[in-house]
């Protein structure tokens, strides 16, 4: 299992897909935040976080994701997640992330929903 987070960013028109692989902890969360804020600064307002390669997340990682969601709300953008493990999906529901960000089963479904 990959433990240090790796990111792949894919721009599709107005949507940016950030694919993660590895542990979303303090370091991993900050990597995602950096990428997300760069995309926001570049004018992107729709972000999809594809967690296909992530099996583990801790509370620090979650708090950083919440900050990203808050930032997206602030700029009237939209953040969504896809391809979550059942454990991570359950965690997102309990922690309230699912209230403010959509969750899709896979990237294809998410892209179809998010692209205008």
């Amino acid at each position: 299992m990959t433990e240090v987070l790796r990111l792949t960013i894919d721009r599709r028109d107005s949507l940016a897909v950030i694919q993660t692989e590895g542990y979303i902890n303090n370091q991993g969360g900050e990597e995602i935040a950096r990428a997300a804020y760069d995309l926001l600064d570049g004018g992107c307002r729709r972000l999809l976080l594809d967690l296909t390669g992530t099996k583990i997340i801790n509370s620090i990682g979650i708090s950083i994701l919440i900050e990203i969601i808050e930032k997206m709300i602030e700029v009237e953008g939209r953040l969504a997640f896809c391809a979550l493990t059942p454990t991570i999906e359950k965690t997102f529901h309990i922690m309230g992330l699912a209230q403010y960000a959509s969750i899709y089963p896979d990237q294809a479904t998410a892209v179809t929903e998010l692209l205008p």
């Binding site: 454990t87 359950k90 922690m95 309230g96």
Partner: peptide
């Protein structure tokens, strides 16, 4: 406080799972 309460919820769910 809300975050801490939810984190405890995640812990309980994890033990249950």
């Amino acid at each position: 406080q809300d975050f801490e309460a939810k984190t405890r919820g995640v812990q309980l769910e994890a033990l249950y799972d």
